[in-house]
Amino acid sequence: MDPGHENQGSSSCPVYVHNPHLKTMKEDVLYHFNLGTSTHNLPALFGDVKFVCVGGSPWRMKSFIEYIAGELGLEDPKSEYPNICAGTDRYAMYKVGPVLSVSHGMGIPSISIMLHELLKLLHHAHCTDVTIIRIGTSGGIGLEPGTIVITKQSVDATFLPKFEQVILGKNVVRSTDLDTELAEQLLQCSNRLNQFKSVIANTMCTMDFYEGQARLDGAFCSYTQEDKQDYLAKAYASGVRNIEMESSVFASMCKLSGLKAAVVCVTLLDRQKGDQLSGSHQVLHDLQQRPQILVGHFIKTQSLEIQKAVGSGNE
């Protein structure tokens, strides 16, 4: 049974891992996190996690945990928010209250490795009812820079909603659907904030930043400006409004684990009008804050609802 459907209506949804070999292992070493089931008490450290936010940059994810600490009223002026994965230079991880913030690097291979270990961590910690959101930046198509795209479906470079991976020499195709209810909740949060425009649309996930995204400014380019514009026009016609490099494997792995997942990316430029960023550092920094603001507002709202539900249940 599809875990995504199995969990619907359940009072407590665990994080699924589909690997029978894990049960035979005396220890599971989460190598790239510098964590393990024998060396760390994962349930004690992470068992209260309800929200996980992931993004490419370690700096951005530290910035997010500092921001969400303030939003949830958990801010401590003396707190340093240490990197839980300080023993490795691959990823960074921060935690405050029920929120975990993790960097994933750039591209499908990097986020895939991180997600394998993150999903196992949540599973070993016996976390339930977890919502996971990727926050990041992207190139827009036909949108004003600064627009937030909440992904409806992640599509590949041929505009098909699928993630393909070669396993044991065979091509395995997996779904890239994301949680529609979560996407609508995020859009409603954006409308209430009324600070920037947000849309729900398809996101194209590519294997490359340059030729794979029809850029003209890479070290190699075998197509014309007209070819590029024709391709982007076809992408737009198919429902694509932004391009990034992680959403397909993120969507497929979260769906397999039964997690409510969303992708929230700000567009830094309209790719139909250019390939390179021209805004000032401050402008780009301000745009990158928008996914944090939106997701922070969502988590704050959800946390208050959880507290109310717990309070009414104790009465």
Score class of each variant (00 low, 15 high):
M106K: 04
D76T: 11
Y91N: 01
S101E: 06
A92L: 05
I68M: 02
K152T: 00
G70S: 12
H126R: 14
P145F: 01
E66Y: 13
Y91M: 01
I68C: 01
H104E: 04
R90C: 12
V155T: 01
I132A: 08
H123C: 14
G87N: 09
L121D: 08
H116G: 09
V149M: 01
D89T: 13
V130Y: 14
H104K: 03
I150E: 11
D89I: 11
G140S: 02
K152G: 06
K95L: 03
T147A: 00
I111G: 04
V155A: 03
T137N: 06
L118S: 05
D129C: 09
V130E: 15
G105N: 08
S101W: 10
L118F: 11
T137Y: 02
G87E: 04
T88W: 03
S101T: 12
H126F: 11
K152S: 13
M106C: 09
G87D: 07
V130F: 15
T128W: 07
V155W: 03
Q153C: 10
E80Q: 11
M114T: 05
I84S: 02
A157N: 03
H104C: 11
G139I: 01
E66P: 14
T131R: 11
T88F: 10
Y91S: 00
D89P: 03
H124D: 12
K120Y: 15
D89Y: 10
P109W: 00
L143F: 09
C127I: 06
Y67H: 12
L119W: 07
